[in-house]
Design a protein around this nucleic acid. Structure first.
Lengths: 317, 317
DNA sequence: TTGTGTTATGAGCAAATACTCACATACGGG
DNA sequence: CCCGTATGTGAGTATTTGCTCATAACACAA
């Protein structure tokens, strides 16, 4: 007070004020009274303590780390949206947690008053998400499939989820009645030129938000396991540098689409523009890491729902 | 969202909200929007996160430790007021720091509009505090000495600070013109029965706040060094269990006044009631530890200004 | 099914906080 | 010595927060 410690005084006082505020739970009025200054000065001290980094807030809850990681992901990869769910250490499920988060994110969009066009990809994760989606009436929205729903054997593609979501929510849904991968580039062009298909493709390009999965290209790649491509084709893709598949289309480690091979027969819509739409990938797990990294690098997505462990790996890489 | 984790959901949400609030710096309105709930619910989540102890605040500043210690002292010993100043590791001064804090505390009282009766003890620490006290006009207050101001040789007692404080502040001051320790119990009674003295004693009993020092009873006890008691008397006191002296009166380790010996000749006022007055001790250092502990144990004081090291020792004991 | 006790929710309001601005005070250079 | 710039202060005001209360949703039992 009287002995002038040249410059530290201010910070000391700020620390005092910060302590009284955050630790002792005083109001700024009380602090002002106790320190014999005006309320405004007390306020300044407190905010000084904060801005000087004297005050550290820690959140003792697993969720806190997740939110941290999400913020880092957003910053590092320029994402508009990122969500990281806690990793359940005892589980190997590729959908646990992220499916819930994806469902929540879908609900967030579907609850909007204004009409929204929702693009829907394919895959196990997405299917799991739809499964736990709470039913909701939203006749104002449109849900459009980004991929064909016909399996190579002519049956309905099991992991095409457009019908599942149609059951859940009362919105107009737009499936694409064609094979995921056509038998030839020419067939694809033919199919795409059909008015019904054309209008769905046009609608998908206008999507406001799209939820997509990311498929790996390991030996048990979904694309192969589900019979859309042969093992030879899978190996050829890998040889060409492909590391992942998004709505049927293969991409290399930089997120660049592979030229030729099965890609010239993929009948899916293009991934909606990242300029006009939120393209949210739902993916987690070591196997999908290269694919997620590629999608991030190639700016194929601007939103990501993943888990803690995957997020950490992505940020470490 | 849909998978009902029976009870953790709420805490998870609270953690989210808390994170968004404290870490991300969102306003509760923003949190409400992001989480799709009302502002009130967001507020409830945040306060739940706080009340559940999810949010931990740490203050990175030496002063924070002092304030922590002060809070602990208050709680542990039922003090109404406690102040802990940083210990300067390189200094052995018994007044450095605490004197400043004491001066600040005095100023706080003296700045009050309403008339206050201030009791003043004696000692080196108190004298140092008065010396750095900023001059202040407070004609509404009264300052009353709790001890006599006449040394055994008839001179003014050097560490009686009533005159020092009277110079500094423009308040009515009330010295006690009698020896600190009378030559006999009878003389004390005689002195105390004099109207002038009587009125000062009565005034001291009505003090609103008292600032006192705590004297040790080592071989260089102030009471002995300043010539108020002989070395034999000092030893006798110690033999009787005395560990400290407050305004001339000796107390044992439980804060109980020693029976007989010099205590029956001490002419000082009694320590003002801890029910009606703030009795603030200013003391630090290893030598005074037993005395401070005794004063705390015996509820002789309800306020303490000390330093970090002493506070830690008191709390450890 | 209906009643009942518990819990959650949102509105409204009072308190607390943050911000802006105008002015005061101090410092350093001309 | 004076002036411009920086720094700090308090008043006023807008925003944000916390609290209370009435009501709604819910679970459970009769």
């Amino acid at each position: 007070m009287s002995k002038p410690e040249i410059t530290n005084t201010k910070l000391d006082d700020a620390a005092r004020a910060g302590w009284l505020y955050y630790v002792a739970g005083n109001t700024q009025d009380e602090i002002a009274a106790k320190l014999g200054v005006s309320r405004q000065s007390a306020q300044r001290m407190v905010s000084l303590a904060v801005s000087e980094g004297l005050v550290k807030v820690r959140l003792d809850h697993p969720i806190a780390h997740c939110l941290d990681l999400a913020a880092q992901l957003k910053k590092r990869f320029g994402l508009k949206m990122a969500e990281v769910v806690p990793t359940d250490p005892g589980s190997t499920s590729t959908t646990l947690g992220v499916a819930d988060a994806a469902a929540a994110e879908m609900t967030r969009w579907l609850k909007m008053e204004a009409p929204v066009i929702v693009g829907i990809g394919t895959g196990r994760t997405l299917k799991a998400a739809i499964e736990i989606l709470s039913p909701i009436d939203c006749p104002q929205h449109k849900v459009v499939s980004l991929t064909g729903n016909i399996a190579p054997d002519g049956s309905a593609a099991f992991y095409n989820v457009i019908f599942n979501i149609a059951e859940k929510i009362k919105a107009r849904s737009f499936p694409m009645s064609l094979p995921v991968i056509a038998s030839s580039p020419e067939e694809r062009e033919l199919l795409h030129s059909q008015p019904m298909i054309r209008s769905v493709l046009d609608l998908s390009a206008k999507a406001d938000v799209a939820f997509i999965g990311i498929g790996d290209l390991e030996d048990d790649a979904p694309l192969f396991v589900d019979g859309f491509i042969s093992h030879d084709e899978l190996q050829a893709l890998r040889q060409a540098g492909a590391v992942c598949e998004i709505i049927g289309r293969a991409f290399d480690r930089n997120g660049i689409a592979i030229e030729g091979l099965t890609n010239e027969r993929v009948a899916s819509a293009l991934i909606p523009s990242r300029e006009t739409a939120m393209v949210i990938a739902i993916a987690k797990g070591a196997k999908k890491m290269p694919g997620i990294a590629a999608a991030l690098k190639g700016n194929l997505i601007n939103g990501l729902i993943t888990d803690e462990r995957t997020a950490e790996a992505l940020l470490a890489g």
